[in-house]
């Protein structure tokens, strides 16, 4: 679809950003009911391995394998969600983290899926970007509808006060389980897409840091609105690219402008700092996280900031 427009690098960049966005929504849905999971990478792994087994060992087409991967992750999600209903806060965090680690231990020791050598030669899906776009569109539509539905409001009320929600007659157990299971299913889709784009995965592909990153997308983007996860994933995927572009722009400045003291020192420092090196990039990422939590702990987008965006229209309607 975009063959003429995008080079391979940009395309791959968009695909990874898109997969991160889908994963961020998989975290957001249980988070909407107050459940914080550090195991979304584990559900991605289940979707990825289930779909890759189907396409590689049974020759099933990708579209079907993708759906089965999502459903498999969703079923496991509900199985995990049942015991998880009883626990909260830090305990749930640790439970999901432990689950995700168990998934990776199983992937490491199960020879059928490659064991320590990793799952190799998964068939490459040339239409990953198109799939990603369609899934994100569906998710955005779903969350936009959910926001204003009774189910969405029930979820918000569970997030705020579970006991109060229960007293109001909301079926807390059913809704929390639904949110957890659906979230796991969405993560499974993201995992299946990843597996058939990267064509290789092993037990460390879906690790704790990925789960942490997914949580960070939502918290940085803003967990109180459904635009937050998408925004967070876009911003945090764009930052390294932005730093890179900045360095290229810096190189466009004529040498004569900067080649005297003290400007040359500043230039050298900036140029060195923007060096596209993984460690430095991640350090910048860590600094941004801390600054975010100090100055904007509710995330970049909040319900208030979105409301302010719509303010002019509101006024004209009511005045």
């Amino acid at each position: 679809m975009f063959d003429g427009l995008l080079d391979g690098y940009t395309r791959s960049l968009l695909i990874f950003a898109g997969i991160h966005m889908i994963a961020a929504y998989s975290f957001y849905l249980p988070y909407k009911t107050g459940q914080v999971s550090l195991g979304q990478a584990g559900f991605m792994a289940i979707g990825a391995y289930a779909s890759a087994i189907l396409t590689q060992k049974f020759g099933i087409p990708f579209a079907a394998a993708l759906i089965v991967g999502g459903i498999a992750a969703g079923i496991i999600g509900i199985a995990i969600g049942f015991p998880a209903l009883r626990i909260k806060g830090i305990y749930l965090l640790l439970l999901t983290l432990g689950f995700s680690e168990i998934v990776s231990v199983v992937a490491l020791s199960w020879e059928y899926v490659g064991g320590a050598q990793g799952f190799r030669q998964i068939s490459f899906n040339p239409f990953t970007l198109e799939y990603v776009i369609v899934i994100i569109a569906v998710l955005l539509f779903f969350f936009a509808r959910l926001e204003r539905s009774s189910l969405g409001r029930a979820m918000d009320s569970i997030h705020q006060d579970e006991t109060a929600a229960e007293v109001m007659g909301i079926d807390v157990v059913r809704i929390k389980l639904l949110a957890f299971g659906l979230g796991a299913g969405i993560a499974g889709l993201a995992g299946a897409l990843y597996a058939h784009h990267a064509t290789f995965m092993d037990s460390t592909t879906f690790n704790i840091m990925l789960s942490v990153e997914i949580l960070v997308f939502v918290v940085v983007g803003g967990g109180s609105t459904y635009w937050g996860p998408a925004f967070g994933a876009v911003v945090l995927n764009a930052i390294p690219e932005f730093l890179r572009a900045l360095r290229e722009w810096l190189e466009l400045i004529p040498v004569a402008w900067t080649n005297f003291y003290p400007v040359n020192r500043v230039y050298d420092f900036l140029h060195g700092f923007l060096d596209f090196e993984n460690a430095k990039r991640l350090i910048a990422y860590g600094v941004i996280l801390i600054l975010m939590m100090i100055f904007r702990p509710d995330g970049l987008l909040t319900r208030d900031s979105l409301r302010r965006l719509r303010l002019p229209r509101w006024k004209s309607r009511h005045a």
């Binding site: 914080v36 960070v216 991640l282 350090i283 990422y285 860590g286 600094v287 702990p297």
Partner: peptide, 19 residues
């Protein structure tokens, strides 16, 4: 905000490791 200090220390984790 229960998640804020968790995330800021995750930020610190990433900084220390990559430093």
């Amino acid at each position: 905000r229960p998640l804020a200090p968790l995330i800021s220390t995750i930020g610190l984790t990433i900084i220390l490791q990559n430093l």
